[in-house]
Structure formats: C-alpha cells, structure tokens
Design a protein around this nucleic acid. Sequence first.
DNA 1: CTGAAAGCGCTTACAG
DNA 2: CTGAAAGCGCTTACAG
Lengths: 339, 339
Amino acid sequence: MAGRATSRDVARLAGVTQATVSYVLTGKGSISAETRERVKAAAKELGYQPNLAARAMRTRKTGRIAVVMGIPIYNPVQMLAGAGSAAKSEGFEMEVHSVDGDIDAVSSRIVELAGSGQYEAVLSFVPTSPAVVAAVPADVAFLTAASFDEQMHSAGELADAGPVATLIEDLIALGHTRFLHVAGEPGFASADSRVHVYTATIERLGVESLGVVGYAWTGEAGAEAIRALPETAPPLAVIAANDLVAIGVMRGAAERGWSVPGDVSVTGWDNYDVSPFLWPSLTTVDNDRAEAGRHAMRRLIATLRGQEWPESDEPPRGRIIWRESTAPPRTRQSDAHGE
Amino acid sequence: MAGRATSRDVARLAGVTQATVSYVLTGKGSISAETRERVKAAAKELGYQPNLAARAMRTRKTGRIAVVMGIPIYNPVQMLAGAGSAAKSEGFEMEVHSVDGDIDAVSSRIVELAGSGQYEAVLSFVPTSPAVVAAVPADVAFLTAASFDEQMHSAGELADAGPVATLIEDLIALGHTRFLHVAGEPGFASADSRVHVYTATIERLGVESLGVVGYAWTGEAGAEAIRALPETAPPLAVIAANDLVAIGVMRGAAERGWSVPGDVSVTGWDNYDVSPFLWPSLTTVDNDRAEAGRHAMRRLIATLRGQEWPESDEPPRGRIIWRESTAPPRTRQSDAHGE
DNA sequence: CTGAAAGCGCTTACAG
DNA sequence: CTGAAAGCGCTTACAG
C-alpha cells in the first residue's frame, strides 16, 4: 500500500521537523546540504508521496488543468497525450472533459469547470463563444486552441494552413488549373484558416475556383460537394478540409464515374490511419499531433504563470504527404463542351 | 469568482452550525425538514460548491478514478465519454491517462497510478499482465476491460464476438464457402474472442477456412494477408478484426486485381466514420461505444463498492451493418484450376 | 538554518 | 435533532 507515509513520518525518520521536510521537498527554504540529504533518503526509504489533496488545500492551488474536447474531428489521443506530457513535466495533472453540443453548451460547460475551483487552468480544443473569457474567474487561466480570432490571426496561427498554398502551387505544377475547396466547420481555426489561405492563393495565382463548399467535418459533405458539380467540372483538384471529407469526395467521384486521380485529384488533411490503404491512397497533410498538444499546453501554462509567449513560438507545421490520389489531370476530352 | 463560499459561510447564512451543513449536504445526519430547506437555500444563494480537496483529505476518499488507454485502436472518445458520464453519475471524477509501450510498461504504470493515493479505482482499456492484480493496493479497485482471461470468459465477454458467427452464417447464406480471418492484436479480448468464435463457427458449419492471420490492428496486416494468398483464393469472404484492417484487405485485393465484393467480400468492425464513404462502402459491426464505456465504468464502481455484478449484465452487443463490400461470390471462373 | 504553531475546508464521533 | 471540537496532511509566516 503506497502513498501511506506522511511528511511527519519522514521528519521523524530523518530526525527533523515536519517543516524542514516541506522545505526540502518544495525547495523553498534554505536547508543545509547534509540535512537535505537525510530528508531525501528518509523520503525515499518510506516511499513518501505527498498527499496532493492536503497540499492543494493549503496552497489553494490544485495543480490540475482541465482540457475540453468536443466529439472530435479525428482521433485526438496523440494530441491529448502530448498535452498531458507537457502538463506533467510542468508539474500539473491534466483532466480531459468531453463535451457534446453546440458552442453555447460548450461555453457554459467551460465556465462551469473554470468556476468549480478544481482547476487552475482550462484549455479548449473546441471553439467557444467570446463571452467565455469574461465569465472565467480571473485566477483561472483560459486558452482556446480551436477558435479563429484576431488574436490568433496575429499570433501566426494562420501558418497552420500554410500547406494549402503549397498544395495548390504543386498541383498547378502538375498541370491543374481548376480547384474546389470543401471546408470544415466554421468556428474552427483549422477550418477557417484553410478557407482563408485557399481563397488568397487562388486569387494570387489566378487559377479557376469552383468555389468553397461543405463547411462540415463529414464524409457526406465531401460526397455532396461532388454530386453538386456540373458534368463539365473535371478535370479538377479538390482540397478537402480533412481526410474524412476527402474520402467523401472520392466516393462522390466514384458515384459519378469520375476517376481519381485522373478526373479528380483529391487532397485531405490529418493523415488518418486508413489513408495510406485507400485505393487510391490519399494525399494528405500530416501534423505532429503530439507536438501540437504539447504546444497548446505549454502556451496555456505560460498564460497561467503570467509569462509572455514569444510570437516566434508557433505550432508545428503540417507536412504534405503525396500519394496516389493526386496526379496530372487527364487531358480534357471534349474541350468544346466545357464552359 | 465561484467556488468561494465555504460551508462555514453557508452555516452562518442559514443560522446553523457547520456540522449541520455537512449533514444536510452529505445526507447523513437526520436533520429536520425545515432546517434542511434553510441550509439548501443558503447554499444555493451563495453558489456553494464543496471544496473537494478538503473533503478528500478528511474522508480519505478522493472520488477520482483513473482510466488507462493505450494509443488506441480506434477513436476512443465516445467510449471515454460514456465511462465519464457513468463515473459522474456515481459521484466520481474520471481522469484519463494515455500510456504507450508494451504490456509491461502499461502494467507498471497502472501499479504506479494505483499506488499514488490519488485514485480509488483504476480501469484499464489495455491488456495488462496478471501480476498487476496483486501489485495494486487492496483499497484500490482495479478492472481491465481489455484482457481476455478466464474471468471474462465466464463473465460472458465472449458475447462481444457473437456477431462473427452471424457474419459467417449470413455470408454462407449469400453463397460463400471459403473464409479468412485477419485477427487483431493478441491479448485484447476483442481480438482473441473473435478468433475463438471464428474458429468455432467455421468448424461448426463445416466450411473452408484459409486460416487466421494478421494479429495486428493495422492496415498493413490486412493488405499483407491478401498479398500472401494463392492466386486461386477467390472467391472468398474475409472477416477482418476491425475497419482499419478491412481497409487494408480491400487495398490488397485491389492490388491483385480482385474485385470487392465480387471476388472478395470484406467485413470490418467498429464502423469507422469513413466506412460508409468507402468505395465500396464497408460492411461492419457497429458497437455502442458510449454504452460500452458506461458498462465498464459501472462494473468498476460495483467492484469498488464490493457489490456483486450480475452475470446477466453484459456489455452491449455489436450490430451488423451490411453495406456494399459484401455480396454473393462471383461464380468461380476456372474451377478446374482450383485446388 | 530549524522548531512550534496556525490554518486551509471539510467530516464525524461525541455530548447535549 | 444540533453544537463544539478534533483532525485529515500539508505549507508558511514567525521566532529563535
């Protein structure tokens, strides 16, 4: 039975007082090297683990951080593992709360968590309403890693969507001249910034766009986007907001008898575990999710401690993985009929 | 700033003593209805929330349960949400820990968590070594919902694999006579029990099996299983351990020029979000993951409280969703060459 | 550099 | 049915 010895036991064994034990363990007082060693040895011998509840009560710091997830777009475990390890290495425990519902439901749940007194900070991976910031107690740090707002805009979070520009440039190099973007759910920085970069890049390079459609993280949105296209649409390249949407796009193309990548080149995002095994395998943007989680958590903890966050410290960039779903466009068969 | 009022404040406002407040809130003492109302009203007015750290310290019960996940087979969020809601409704907080590594790494982490004094119970969704049970402190409940052992055997967890039998029976009704099972990672009850039921059903119905292969939750295992087949294998039906494996199987078939479902019928498990949008869409077994999570958590809490768990209370059964990847086998073209 | 003491907010015997 | 008091294990001024 571990976790049983108290600081009093350690003190007794080391022949010092309880306060000395506390000073040694928290590193606060100035204790002689010799005493310090004695205390540490005693703590080790007893397998001493501080009672966190008692410490929390006395310090009024719980050492706990809440993370809020929606029913997520993709498997979030690696991101959570990254966030958790960053929290742990800074001495915090991380607790994950899944919240289902719309932005208001999520927002009020966050306010509730922040007000529960159990957490020193709350990190949201779901978009929240702006009112949350004001409703969170002043002594609880709050950061949303999901929302697209002015702050993020300037903080360089747009960089996350950078691969969209590369994707388009490289597809043009392959011979593509016509594009379509199937976007993710509005309110998510990842979705909004990709739309932003897509639109800007299309304009900058002067190529044709069939529009921005979808606005949902679903396969259905991808399939529907293709079903709604005119018969004359191919050849074209579709930039899908993530792999699920892209798989819907591929299905939509198959339903119409359009070949991938011959008639329709398709790109996704997030590199699902299934994506290398699709037929054709899916070109996608791979993110280091664990690092993304660590990054968000470190930033939250900096906020919590009132530290400045260097602008240069951006989240990790996505890396494009080219696979079979992208290729030079098949030569247009009946150019005369194209509009 | 919420979470600020203490039981003392509530007592003062209600004109009673702190003990009375505690009795009312924990429902333990016998307090007059009138006093009870006054206390409740006061608590509500002050937005009183008990300080959990203080309560934990006094009761020596933390009210917290640790859940251990590996880097998971599929998106675990719904299962975790189910487990979390069951925990919450029983008055516990649930904390998720992701652990990477082999069975020994996972096991020692579990022992560490159980011994930390922070949790009243630990629930593992990863297989653990048998030694864990002995190493966990006696006052910490422990349950693994992932391992396939005698206990589960008798507790009816095999029922989880029941759909395998139905799958085979229905495929036979469709005209199939030759099967292959691509299994998941050994040690996982879900993998082992499916192998068990597959083997038993093949034998019972006297149909041909090309074997049980794979033993990994990967797309590569699925593709490899097909690549290793003799040219004469089709038509056959492949029971894959989950959708990722099944997608690998479909790719393997495509590589060999075998059509799905004409030459190879394929079934998966877990109903991935991408599976309805594959081409062909994938026949699979859909589980109520949230209910599975709730079930495991309720059972853990019953253990924690020393309650008997009724044998009849089984985890939810999977429901087969028939889609395009399964169909009657194409007539064998060159039966003479078949072995 | 170390010791004695207070107190974080709660629950729970024990008297009344 | 309610009140006064102890104590869970820790940290932190305050003296020495």
